[in-house]
């Protein structure tokens, strides 16, 4: 009794983490986590620095807009990647138009309507299988069912990219819809809303920013794909303004063919195209983030 009293009066209270193994463990784990973070950052920084160092020289207004991609032997400064920029924007854009609405609707069906039914389970299983299909197989698939009958076109490339994007959009949107608390749905039902109303006016807005993030991942993935386009759009050196007919070209395809060349000019164009592709994806991400933030400014 006396000892306790004098102790509590005399000495200052020590509220630090008890010394010994527990404190050391905390320090070791903290260092390990920082280390892991730095290790993850290294390749990313390396890629970006290399891209800018080797590609920045090629970038100019002419490079981005000139519609003729010159032969490999021609040095940098003549012609440009305009055709590939247009092709990438058109093909990826149309693919997004096909895949994102379909994917989001599929996720809505899975989470809000399908329940545990046989159709919902089938769709869920199929989309998982689709995630694992190699991208070149998607290209071959479109080649057989579309290109052989209707010829090469940017649209055929869009079909192949949409096939790639679809399972990603379904999976990510589904996960986001699952996170919407049930109490929100109940609140809406209690006001006399129909199921479709609940989904459109409460569930989808609440999940919007997550759905956009998932869709952007899919777009970025598709924009950088080469393999599915080889069999579907072939490649050309001139801008093809018509998405729906005739061979087209895209930045990844140009990177692929120019980087293989032995000529310095072609190599420089490949680096420039790579930097352009990363920049386009990056700008797209930022724009989509801003737009989403404007739409969801009251959701937090």
């Amino acid at each position: 009794m006396m000892a306790a009293a004098s102790n509590s009066l005399g000495q200052p209270v020590d509220l630090r983490e008890p010394s010994g193994w527990r404190r050391s463990k905390n320090q070791i784990m903290t260092i390990l986590m920082w280390l892991a973070f730095v290790i993850v950052l290294i390749p990313l920084a390396f890629v970006l620095v290399t891209l800018v160092a080797k590609g920045a020289d090629a970038i100019s207004l002419q490079f981005l807009t000139n519609s003729t991609i010159p032969p490999n032997v021609v040095p940098l400064g003549v012609g440009g990647m305009g055709a590939a920029v247009v092709g990438t924007l058109e093909i990826t854009g149309f693919a997004s138009l096909l895949a994102i609405p379909l994917g989001v609707l599929g996720a809505v069906y899975l989470n809000e309507y399908g329940g545990n039914g046989i159709l919902a389970r089938l769709i869920s299983f199929m989309s998982s299988v689709m995630t694992g299909v190699p991208s070149i197989v998607m290209g071959l698939f479109i080649y057989i069912i579309w290109v052989l009958h209707f010829g090469y076109s940017g649209m055929a490339g869009s079909f192949a990219l949409a096939c790639l994007m679809l399972p990603i959009v379904i999976r990510s949107s589904y996960e986001m819809l699952r996170l919407v608390p049930d109490s929100l749905r109940q609140g809406s039902y209690a006001l006399g809303a129909t199921k479709a109303r609940v989904t459109v006016t409460v569930v989808l807005p609440a999940a919007l920013s997550g759905i956009v993030s998932g869709a952007l991942l899919a777009v970025a993935r598709a924009a950088g794909e080469t393999a599915p386009l080889i069999f579907t759009i072939l490649t050309v050196e001139q801008t093809n303004p018509n998405l729906f007919s005739g061979p087209d070209t895209s930045l990844p395809l140009q990177i692929f063919s120019n980087a293989q060349s032995a000529y310095v000019g072609a190599n420089a164009r490949a680096w420039g195209a790579a930097l352009t592709l990363v920049a386009i994806t990056f700008i797209l991400m930022i724009v989509a983030r801003i737009v989403t933030a404007l739409f969801t400014r009251n959701t937090r």
């Binding site: 109490s183 929100l184 109940q186 609140g187 039902y189 006399g192 969801t296 009251n298 959701t299």
Partner: peptide, 17 residues
């Protein structure tokens, strides 16, 4: 029915609006 008979829940559930 629910348009005539409303409900308030145990946990407040304002919409994210």
């Amino acid at each position: 029915v629910r348009r005539r008979i409303g409900m308030v829940f145990q946990k407040a559930n304002p919409f994210p609006k």
